[in-house]
Simulated scan of single mutants.
Amino acid sequence: MSASPLSPTATLASLTAAAWALRTQFFVSGALFATWGVHVPTVKAHYGLGEQSLALAMLASGIGAVVALAHAGRVVGRFGPRLVAALMGLLLCAAVASLLMTPAYAGLLITMVLFGGTASLFDVSINAEASEIEHRAARPLMSGFHAMFSLGGMVGAGAGSLLPAWGVGAQLHLTLAAALALLMVWAACGAMLPMAGNAGDAHPLSLPRGPLALIGTLAALGLIAEGAMYDWSVLFLKQERHSNSSLAALGYASFSLAMAMGRFAGDWVRARVAPIRLLIFSGLLAALGMSLALLVRAAPAGLIGFALVGLGLSNVVPVLFSAASRIPGVAPAHGIAAVSAVGYLGMMAGPPLIGLVAEHSSLTVGLGCVVAFALFMAVAAPRALKAANAS
């Protein structure tokens, strides 16, 4: 999917303002994901769910995302990123505020479908404009945009850790977070560049073939691991390590902070470390961090382990997207779009998969999948990136 071209009258000032608006949107997206993440134990307790039922609720979110992704190119292509971001931001905030409002499990499933669908459309719309801004600025900006997502995750998780200690209840936290996020989204939409919709620019969801298939698989595995941290890290510390709610929320915050730091430094690192070596190191570091969190029973070890996972995963997507853009005979935009689609599906499908494993074994065993996926990334990196002529 490509966005409509910017107006020729766009000035440097408007481009700078739009870039900061996009940073705000990515920050809000990360904060809302974190708000859901820190309240996974709350949702589980509120509805009286086991791991399997909780995993099915997460799967409902994945189904909403899959349906939305199948039409994302058409929707954003027709209406433009600014309008889609405004409308999806409204619905996404409504879904977050409603997580604990429904009395029945069926209501939660409907809310999660809305959450997954609106989050994915919001993500596609802001990434579409981010790509155009980066093109117009003629310098790397994407890592910085995605770093703001991680920073938002850290702030959202930090708020989830502090507010219970101050006597703020879960529903009030969700409502306040959603209201503040909506104000930020709409304020940022006002500064987004006027990229008019174009129905002829719509493309359906595409899946990778040939060399792109392995790159897409690695992206999916990396994002499964990332999604596992979003949805299960807090519950792991609370349930498996018997941490209180404030300390458990810091598990998500430590992961997000480390990922943000890795992404803010991402362009500098990628300029100095070869892609294959960087991806191998990233996979090994993520596997080491997850192993530390799972094998050492002290809660601080979990915080350190989650931070290492975040640092290890921080540059996986930029490396793989760069490789996808250099496949011979494949347009860069198509390569990135195909890998992005599979990767996002992995991010949405991974947490329910881990939940199903946890239901039949334990959450520790379920999160052990992250170790296996990270090791596979490290082992498969040379073949994947050489196939893309990315070495």
Rank of each mutant, 00 (worst) to 15 (best):
S7T: 15
P8S: 10
P8F: 05
L12A: 15
W20E: 00
A21G: 15
R23G: 07
R23F: 07
R23V: 01
Q25C: 15
A31M: 15
L32E: 05
T35V: 12
V43Y: 02
K44H: 09
Y47L: 13
Y47D: 04
G48K: 13
L49E: 06
Q52N: 15
Q52R: 14
L59T: 08
L59S: 12
S61Q: 13
I63F: 14
A65T: 13
G77D: 12
G77F: 05
P81V: 09
L83R: 12
V84D: 12
A86K: 09
L87N: 05
L87C: 11
L90S: 09
C93P: 03
A95P: 07
S98T: 14
M101R: 11
T102V: 06
P103F: 08
P103R: 03
L108F: 04
L109E: 02
T111C: 10
V113D: 03
F115Q: 01
S120I: 09
D123K: 07
S125T: 07
N127M: 11
I133T: 06
R136I: 00
A137G: 04
P140F: 07
M142I: 10
F149T: 07
F149S: 06
G152A: 01
V155G: 11
A159D: 00
A159T: 04
G167W: 00
V168Q: 05
A170L: 03
A179Q: 01
L183I: 10
V185F: 12
W186A: 10
C189P: 00
G190S: 03
L193K: 08
A196P: 04
N198P: 02
H203C: 01
H203K: 09
L205Q: 09
S206Q: 13
L221V: 04
G222R: 06
G222D: 02
A225S: 14
G227A: 02
A228D: 02
D231R: 00
K238Q: 15
E240R: 13
E240S: 14
S243V: 03
N244F: 14
N244A: 14
S245Y: 09
A248D: 10
G251Q: 05
S254R: 08
F255N: 09
S256K: 07
G262W: 11
F264Q: 03
G266I: 05
D267L: 03
R270H: 01
A271D: 14
A274H: 11
A274R: 14
I276K: 13
L279N: 02
G283S: 11
G283I: 06
G289T: 00
I304F: 12
G305Y: 00
L311I: 00
V317M: 05
S325R: 10
I327C: 01
H334M: 14
I336K: 11
V339P: 03
V339S: 06
S340E: 08
S340F: 04
V342Q: 15
M347E: 05
G355T: 10
V357F: 02
E359I: 00
L363H: 10
T364K: 06
L367K: 05
G368H: 03
V370I: 14
V371N: 10
A372G: 07
A372C: 11
A374N: 06
A380S: 11
P382D: 01
A384S: 13
L385I: 04
A388I: 02
S391Y: 03
